[in-house]
Design a protein around this nucleic acid. Sequence first.
DNA 1: AACAAAAATATCACATTATGAAAATTTAGA
DNA 2: TCTAAATTTTCATAATGTGATATTTTTGTT
Lengths: 257, 257
Amino acid sequence: MSTAPGSVQSIDRTLSILETLSAAPLGLSLSDLAAATDLHISTAHRLVNVLAEHGYALKDPSSGKYRLTLRTFEIGSRVSSVWNLLSSAKPQLDELAAVSQEAVHLVERDGHGIVYLYKAEPFQQLVRMDSHVGLRNPMYCTGVGKSILALLPPKAVKEIWETEAHPVFSPHTIVDFSDMQKELDRIRSRGYAIDDEEHEPGVRCIAAAIRNWAGAPVAAISISAPVSRMDAQAMERLLPRLLETSVQISRMMGFSD
Amino acid sequence: MSTAPGSVQSIDRTLSILETLSAAPLGLSLSDLAAATDLHISTAHRLVNVLAEHGYALKDPSSGKYRLTLRTFEIGSRVSSVWNLLSSAKPQLDELAAVSQEAVHLVERDGHGIVYLYKAEPFQQLVRMDSHVGLRNPMYCTGVGKSILALLPPKAVKEIWETEAHPVFSPHTIVDFSDMQKELDRIRSRGYAIDDEEHEPGVRCIAAAIRNWAGAPVAAISISAPVSRMDAQAMERLLPRLLETSVQISRMMGFSD
DNA sequence: AACAAAAATATCACATTATGAAAATTTAGA
DNA sequence: TCTAAATTTTCATAATGTGATATTTTTGTT
């Protein structure tokens, strides 16, 4: 582990510990943590205890394992954009879920990916979908992601495309750049995106971008359903609602036309 | 700024930067950040850039200010207890909000306080309440907090009481320890807690604890409403629902009787 | 536009600080 | 109870982070 110039070794290592712990739902023993982060056990001990002193981690008294506390949740929930979006969008999304009787997602763009900020589900309609608040996904294979890509400058799209891999999740996943460009053209002309089982087999969704005061596509919303329910008629019925909601939220973010 | 023995200066400072940024919705310039954290500007620059390299912060291109990214949200959302509780409790809480037509909260105990994990609101019922997901509150002045305190060992209650201050939020706030002990007795015998404008004037709520497999009160749920709506009859009507839901969730956490 | 002032970023010699080997202690297993 | 493993503490040492200074960039003013 060589520290990049301008970086700080102890912080690199501590963030590595933080991330390792966040991926371990059951917690980790000190030795496991040291092994997973490739640190000397003495160093791992010191660093995880610094996190503990600051309330970010603790040694679970019953299991003896280290795990993260809600301090990280607290800090993460305070990120300003989460605030802005959720406070203005939540009621609209709940209503959209209620009238469509399908799962509705709100995601925000973050760097080259999207992060799920909110999921509104209708009662009883339990669809197996592995989306959840806090999840990060790439843009190229999701409806929400593509709806955002379609409104980004071509240079940005290219940069994003070139700096990441494009795993195939299904036969429908778009992995060719010129195919993606055509798809983004379609999305621009239609005003919405369709994810036709490109990420999760069996799930189809329609998505629309949310734009801020500067017109930048900072977020997106979607309605997801099993392909059996999300057929042509369903899409025709749901699209006006989806677009209406996305426009409303965009307006609340300061976007005008 | 003297580093406590066993601690690591650069991490102390970086976490201080993280926390400062999380409290600044509009972001902070480098000099403001340095001033707020009492760091040399050169040091602040180096440390915030380490956070940026790891994707936790960024320098907003439009404003030139540093702010947190969704990386912190992503890490925070992965805390295992959030997972466990949310996945089992969410549908129940949504239903409770729907049948009661009032705001429902789920909180988890974290150290000496509670953190809001979920808020379910009925349509249209917009009550001014400054609760939100991620918020941390003390236990002594909230219904959820008191319902948890009531099931903790007396030693733990005493320890929590003695290590924190007890600001008065309203004439009803309980700030005397023996008063609190009587109140916790009442809560134990009734099986639920009432927050009668002890934290937010004008808001009354009923709360019940959620217990895990070991019987420990790890979380709590509540129904909140303006005092005008949350009168004796309303409480009589809502209590069975609240208790039923808390028992259901406790069962899903592995608690039996 | 040109200038001045302020803010942000990069450099680097140095002393402070984090490091990890080793010892001491605690916990778990036989 | 004893043994082995895991955790925690200690401490000498060198590597690492620090902050003064220099450079560059940005911002505001005439």
